[in-house]
Design a protein around this nucleic acid. Structure first.
Lengths: 257, 257
DNA sequence: TGTTGTGAAGAGCTTCACAGCT
DNA sequence: AGCTGTGAAGCTCTTCACAACA
């Protein structure tokens, strides 16, 4: 894999430091591995096999091994992976070794909750500022930070480069906020507003949408109830311990954690 | 997902009512189309072409047409799609024509915000109950609903079948909550807790994790800054309101080099 | 003419199964 | 023996390009 599809561009000077050009699907799973590894480290494990780590991260072991092989792999055959070494490696690839500044725009219901979310501050991220445009909110202190007016965004960005902008405004204002973030030099956006954002190439947008998730679940519910039909509903198979359980939705192993 | 439970079975008797067996990727996009269609309907459009709708939903038109073709397709060549007809069709496929009950477990920071999220109540979903185990929270009224103790879940589920359970507890409690939801007959779970859930086959779990999204964005930031290297940062192309900009993630595009 | 619906090609991801190392 | 790393096969999703049609 990773057969460099030689595009038109001239060859790199080689001697690449560590930019393995990971598949997007792999990138999306690394954070999950990282969390599992941290849990294992806390529990005192020094090494872990691909099978154990795969279970802890909720994937199958072949996939996990292939994912890790993409980043140069630090496993030992017959033994497994060194937990702390792997943690360092993944953190380095994800760019978590440097502290990244996050700004949050929109402090309604959801934004307020996000501002206080612990997982935010942990793992290399730091909330640099909170913004809103509502005069009622500007000036308020939320979880130790004062809400500033969005107009101050350029100054804040100038002082301290912003790595990621989180948008938790209503849908109507979201595109405008995105434009302002981009203008301030932000190239990573996490959008909680229920709308599509248009941004220039080079800017990354990821989206989290509660309503969409619910509707996807609704589809599966609907299908289950329609499809079940006559065959006595299969209820819940008591012990379908088989490791080969075709993840009907998700595996079903009784791992005691 | 439970594609074909009996793999070796002979051909179906056909005569399927309306279970087109959609690709998962398509299902995940239907809610986005639905939202765009609602906006178009409000704006007075009666028909829409695949190109227009694709732009509004942030996908390309070929993908959109293929997606819609999977559900039997209700377009007219040379004209486009009838907006209201398509809305009805998608809502029917997603199972949104019947009202679905949602329960929310865990009313900390995030759960509190979710309870008040408007998009929740809209579009066929109804919050049937709020649960927690913290004595400080049980009994409180939040956004018009009283928080009940999680022990009451079985009763509530008996009265009114629960379609989806939303978990917004800390990671430690999440698996136990999931087990209780499953025991109460819930077969769709939306998990906001940062952990892997193990559930029996037949139960659908979807996950939303802020920290993971941030880490994925971090990776792309890291890559951009490493890869960019010397070339004076290309700053931002002036007009960002341009309609052209497709979705992000892909930087290196018009790099004149 | 304008736009949908779709076969076919292409790209990406997952799974298998085993060679190779400890 | 045990476990990782990986070529190859298989599957899913995306994109292309055009025939079919109003």
């Amino acid at each position: 894999m990773s057969q460099h599809p030689p595009p038109g561009t001239p060859g790199h000077p080689a001697a690449v430091p560590a930019l393995p050009d990971l598949p997007e699907a792999t990138v999306a799973r690394l954070p999950e591995y990282l969390r599992a590894l941290h849990n294992l480290a806390e529990a005192g494990h020094e090494t872990v096999s691909s099978e154990e780590l795969a279970v802890a991260a909720g994937v199958n072991s072949a996939k996990l091994r292939k994912d890790l092989s993409h980043l140069g792999s630090y496993g030992t055959r017959g033994v497994g992976y060194d937990v702390t070494l792997l943690v360092d490696q993944i953190e380095s690839v994800l760019g978590l070794t440097q502290r990244r500044s996050v700004v949050l725009v929109g402090l309604g219901n959801l934004g307020h909750a996000l501002a206080g979310y612990a997982g935010f501050a942990s793992r290399g991220f730091r909330i640099a500022a909170l913004f809103d445009v509502d005069p009622e909110l500007v000036g308020q202190r939320i979880h130790g930070l004062t809400v500033r007016h969005l107009d101050e965004l350029p100054q804040v960005a100038a002082e301290d480069p912003i790595s990621v902008g989180v948008i938790s405004t209503p849908a109507e204002g979201a595109q405008s906020v995105a434009d302002q973030l981009v203008a301030a030099g932000v190239t990573g956006i996490l959008n909680f507003a229920p709308c599509v954002l248009t941004v220039p190439a080079g800017v990354d947008v990821r989206k989290v949408d509660l309503a969409i998730e619910l509707q996807i679940l609704s589809f599966h519910q609907h299908r289950k109830s329609s499809a079940a039909g006559p065959a006595g509903l299969t209820a819940l198979p008591g012990g379908l311990t088989g490791p080969g359980t075709h993840h009907s939705t998700d595996a079903a192993e009784a791992v005691g954690s």
